[in-house]
């Protein structure tokens, strides 16, 4: 799309959407949000970038092939389950570290996995779709 305004704004939009997506991912455990929605928002961010400035720019910003991102996602989700297997004898039994009021658990790693799979899955479709047009 050859719109100067859209192209100029797309970078800012992209950064905003990415930040929001990470925020949504993190807050998901206590407030509405989570890895799935986060991944959708991030994918929308990359799609905006691809629409405004071309698929090549979006691909370069992503660094990895979308398929690789999916692989990282599944790996993260699996890794998130392993500590439970080690400590609790049960795969995906999540472990928690409580530091004052902050609770950090392996659920976050699992949710990051979901986030990456959704991001990679949607981008692999959208980027190819844009290229095919």
């Amino acid at each position: 799309m050859n719109s100067l305004i859209f192209a100029a704004f797309s970078r800012i939009l992209f950064i905003l959407m990415l930040a929001v997506s990470l925020f949504v991912l993190y807050r998901g455990h206590n407030e509405p949000g989570g890895g799935f929605v986060g991944g959708l928002i991030a994918a929308a961010g990359f799609a905006t970038l691809a629409l405004a400035r071309g698929v090549d720019v979006a691909r370069a910003t992503l660094r990895f092939e979308p398929m690789t991102v999916i692989g990282f996602g599944i790996l993260a989700a699996l890794l998130g389950g392993l500590p439970g297997l080690w400590l609790d004898d049960s795969f995906l039994a999540h472990q928690w570290a409580i530091l004052g009021s902050a609770h950090i658990g392996t659920t976050l790693l699992f949710d990051i996995g979901v986030y990456l799979v959704v991001l990679g899955g949607i981008l692999s479709l959208i980027l190819r779709f844009y290229e095919g047009l």
Partner: peptide, 15 residues
């Protein structure tokens, strides 16, 4: 350790 039941079900109970 989560107040968002939907998300906790997704990532923990039914992980």
């Amino acid at each position: 350790h989560g107040r968002n039941v939907v998300n906790v079900v997704l990532v923990d109970y039914r992980a």
